Amino acid sequence: MDALKSAGRALIRSPSLAKQSWGGGGRHRKLPENWTDTRETLLEGMLFSLKYLGMTLVEQPKGEELSAAAIKRIVATAKASGKKLQKVTLKVSPRGIILTDNLTNQLIENVSIYRISYCTADKMHDKVFAYIAQSQHNQSLECHAFLCTKRKMAQAVTLTVAQAFKVAFEFWQVSKEEKEKRDKASQEGGDVLGARQDCTPPLKSLVATGNLLDLEETAKAPLSTVSANTTNMDEVPRPQALSGSSVVWELDDGLDEAFSRLAQSRTNPQVLDTGLTAQDMHYAQCLSPVDWDKPDSSGTEQDDLFSF
């Protein structure tokens, strides 16, 4: 819950932080000083300027060897085509990944977070970031790969997607708890209302004896509580940590079903599988986004697919 609360507080303090972009060759504004600060901008989305290598189908939802083989196929196909790589912007948030063309600003792909089953910074092609997700059109699994400016960037994108998945799962947990509370309150309110109706004398007997209905007592009954809980029953509950912020979080049926399955089948359902080692994760978390744009010590960066 700490990640969720800190993310909400950060967004309320400075929503404009989320509009910064990394990996864009110096076009961005001043960047936060450390990885923790940038992680807090996830709610509205972190932007990464990358190059799209392509996509291939895979048979399993996750796995280092599986993704490595898929990336190898994608890279080989991209090299064989001889075409310049498409420059894209990857927007990562707890909602998922939005992929747009840098030149036309046209939407290429919009992947809900619950469809993503794996992401990684490839070991062999260490400047490549990739994720595996279920197609929104059918049940097939797709591996999408992107060329980053350097290994640090690939690791940073991988960690960002993993963190977005974690925050999304926490949102789901909060929403589920809130819905259970509202359902319980609604049920209790309905029981109270039913009890009051059972003990209320029939209207005919009131008229016969000349008694008047006590409207004041009726007004004191917990009807307002019942209506408050039943009027918006169809509205999706939102985490309290975000009250007053500009973010509107809505959970669709697909996300609810997917996270429910994860909660039942996995020990740590909030953790998205990645190909990063503990050492890689520690190294990337210690980086400032400013470091992502620094040239690798191995030599001059080449803006070309064939540089790796």
Rank of each mutant, 00 (worst) to 15 (best):
106 Q>L: 03
231 T>C: 08
201 P>Q: 10
72 K>I: 13
120 T>V: 08
13 R>C: 07
141 L>S: 04
95 R>Q: 10
15 P>L: 00
208 A>D: 07
256 D>M: 09
193 L>S: 05
51 K>D: 00
126 D>E: 05
116 I>L: 03
279 Q>D: 07
28 H>A: 15
187 Q>W: 05
79 K>V: 13
30 K>S: 04
17 L>F: 04
268 N>Q: 03
245 S>V: 03
177 E>S: 12
208 A>G: 07
119 C>I: 07
220 K>G: 03
215 L>R: 03
234 D>V: 12
161 V>I: 07
119 C>N: 07
163 Q>F: 14
11 L>R: 13
200 T>D: 03
65 E>P: 05
171 F>T: 00
277 T>N: 01
256 D>T: 06
54 G>L: 03
218 T>Y: 03
159 L>G: 13
269 P>L: 03
243 S>R: 11
246 S>V: 00
111 V>E: 10
188 E>I: 08
16 S>Q: 10
183 D>T: 08
257 E>Q: 10
34 N>T: 14
111 V>Q: 13
76 A>P: 11
233 M>V: 11
255 L>K: 10
249 W>G: 07
23 G>Y: 04
3 A>R: 04
104 T>A: 07
142 E>Q: 10
277 T>E: 07
183 D>I: 06
253 D>K: 06
58 V>F: 08
307 S>W: 13
298 S>P: 03
173 Q>H: 11
280 D>V: 06
167 V>T: 00
4 L>E: 02
149 T>C: 06
121 A>I: 03
175 S>C: 01
286 C>E: 04
300 T>F: 02
125 H>S: 03
287 L>G: 01
49 S>Q: 09
226 V>F: 08
117 S>L: 06
11 L>Y: 13
148 C>L: 15
125 H>F: 14
191 D>I: 03
201 P>H: 15
190 G>M: 02
197 Q>W: 11
67 S>G: 15
49 S>R: 11
197 Q>Y: 06
232 N>M: 05
230 T>C: 04
180 E>H: 05
207 V>H: 03
144 H>M: 13
93 S>Y: 15
176 K>M: 11
203 L>A: 06
203 L>P: 08
3 A>S: 10
98 I>E: 14
220 K>H: 07
98 I>P: 15
222 P>H: 08
164 A>R: 12
98 I>D: 07
4 L>C: 04
65 E>C: 14
195 A>M: 04
96 G>N: 13
98 I>S: 00
21 S>V: 07
266 R>H: 01
307 S>A: 09
129 F>Y: 09
2 D>K: 07
55 M>Y: 10
144 H>S: 14
237 P>Y: 07
174 V>K: 00
167 V>C: 07
283 Y>F: 11
146 F>E: 05
147 L>M: 07
234 D>E: 13
80 A>D: 08
225 T>D: 05
233 M>Y: 07
213 L>C: 09
258 A>M: 14
244 G>K: 12
243 S>Q: 06
262 L>E: 02
284 A>H: 00
199 C>G: 06
68 A>W: 13
200 T>W: 03
167 V>L: 09
202 P>L: 11
100 T>R: 09
160 T>Y: 14
76 A>T: 12
14 S>I: 00
150 K>H: 00
252 D>I: 04
268 N>L: 00
222 P>S: 10
162 A>G: 10
232 N>Y: 09
44 E>K: 13
36 T>G: 13
71 I>G: 10
24 G>S: 11
121 A>M: 06
51 K>L: 15
179 K>N: 05
235 E>Q: 15
248 V>Q: 03
30 K>M: 13
174 V>N: 04
163 Q>W: 00
201 P>V: 03
38 T>V: 10
100 T>S: 13
95 R>K: 08
14 S>R: 15
43 L>Q: 08
242 L>Y: 05
73 R>T: 10
138 N>M: 10
241 A>I: 00
198 D>F: 12
137 H>M: 12
63 G>T: 14
266 R>N: 01
300 T>K: 05
220 K>S: 02
150 K>Q: 00
5 K>W: 07
178 E>N: 00
237 P>M: 07
196 R>G: 02
45 G>A: 15
17 L>E: 14
141 L>Q: 09
116 I>R: 05
167 V>R: 09
250 E>S: 15
148 C>Y: 04
169 F>M: 01
183 D>M: 04
116 I>F: 12
21 S>P: 09
103 L>A: 00
179 K>R: 11
68 A>C: 01
94 P>D: 03
64 E>L: 07
190 G>C: 03
153 M>H: 07
252 D>N: 15
297 S>C: 08
284 A>F: 00
244 G>N: 02
101 D>T: 06
228 A>S: 13
180 E>A: 14
200 T>E: 03
279 Q>C: 00
62 K>D: 05
222 P>G: 04
282 H>Y: 13
233 M>E: 03
87 K>T: 14
113 I>D: 09
301 E>K: 00
207 V>T: 02
233 M>A: 06
191 D>H: 09
155 Q>F: 13
241 A>C: 00
277 T>A: 10
19 K>P: 12
109 E>T: 00
280 D>G: 05
125 H>L: 08
134 Q>R: 13
139 Q>I: 13
224 S>V: 08
66 L>C: 09
15 P>I: 05
158 T>V: 15
140 S>R: 06
181 K>L: 07
52 Y>Q: 00
195 A>W: 05
22 W>C: 03
205 S>N: 10
277 T>R: 00
153 M>L: 08
204 K>S: 12
251 L>C: 07
232 N>L: 08
60 Q>G: 05
135 S>E: 10
217 E>M: 13
174 V>E: 06
72 K>A: 06
224 S>Y: 11
260 S>K: 00
289 P>W: 05
120 T>F: 13
280 D>S: 07
178 E>V: 13
18 A>S: 05
125 H>Q: 08
143 C>Y: 14
81 S>R: 07
28 H>F: 12
203 L>R: 04
160 T>W: 06
294 K>G: 04
201 P>C: 05
203 L>Y: 06
10 A>W: 01
162 A>T: 13
136 Q>C: 03
182 R>P: 11
293 D>F: 03
199 C>A: 10
99 L>V: 14
74 I>T: 14
195 A>K: 13
5 K>N: 04
69 A>S: 15
149 T>K: 12
227 S>G: 02
113 I>V: 13
26 G>L: 09
272 L>D: 05
104 T>M: 00
141 L>K: 09
108 I>M: 01
230 T>Q: 00
87 K>F: 13
161 V>A: 05
90 L>M: 13
36 T>S: 02
20 Q>L: 05
297 S>R: 05
62 K>R: 06
186 S>G: 06
244 G>P: 05
282 H>P: 04
291 D>V: 02
299 G>L: 03
77 T>A: 04
137 H>A: 08
179 K>D: 05
292 W>H: 02
270 Q>A: 02
93 S>N: 11
116 I>Y: 06
45 G>F: 04
172 W>D: 01
100 T>L: 12
4 L>T: 03
184 K>A: 03
275 G>Y: 05
222 P>Y: 11
72 K>D: 15
57 L>R: 13
209 T>I: 15
194 G>R: 00
55 M>P: 06
207 V>D: 02
31 L>S: 04
165 F>M: 01
178 E>I: 00
245 S>G: 12
217 E>D: 10
238 R>V: 05
269 P>T: 02
53 L>W: 14
55 M>L: 12
53 L>S: 07
34 N>P: 03
246 S>P: 05
195 A>D: 03
193 L>N: 03
178 E>H: 15
190 G>A: 13
243 S>N: 07
7 A>F: 13
183 D>R: 13
83 K>I: 12
295 P>V: 06
168 A>E: 02
283 Y>L: 09
202 P>C: 01
180 E>Y: 11
235 E>Y: 10
167 V>W: 02
17 L>Q: 13
172 W>A: 01
42 L>S: 15
181 K>W: 15
88 V>N: 01
43 L>F: 11
126 D>G: 02
283 Y>I: 00
37 D>N: 12
173 Q>M: 02
108 I>Q: 03
4 L>Q: 02
193 L>E: 00
278 A>K: 08
16 S>D: 10
177 E>R: 15
224 S>C: 08
122 D>C: 10
26 G>M: 03
69 A>G: 09
19 K>G: 15
65 E>I: 02
230 T>V: 06
171 F>R: 03
178 E>G: 14
40 E>F: 10
302 Q>Y: 04
67 S>M: 14
152 K>E: 13
47 L>I: 07
206 L>V: 14
190 G>L: 13
140 S>Q: 11
129 F>L: 10
81 S>M: 14
7 A>R: 07
164 A>K: 05
49 S>M: 15
3 A>D: 08
189 G>Q: 07
184 K>L: 12
76 A>H: 12
115 R>A: 07
182 R>M: 04
11 L>W: 04
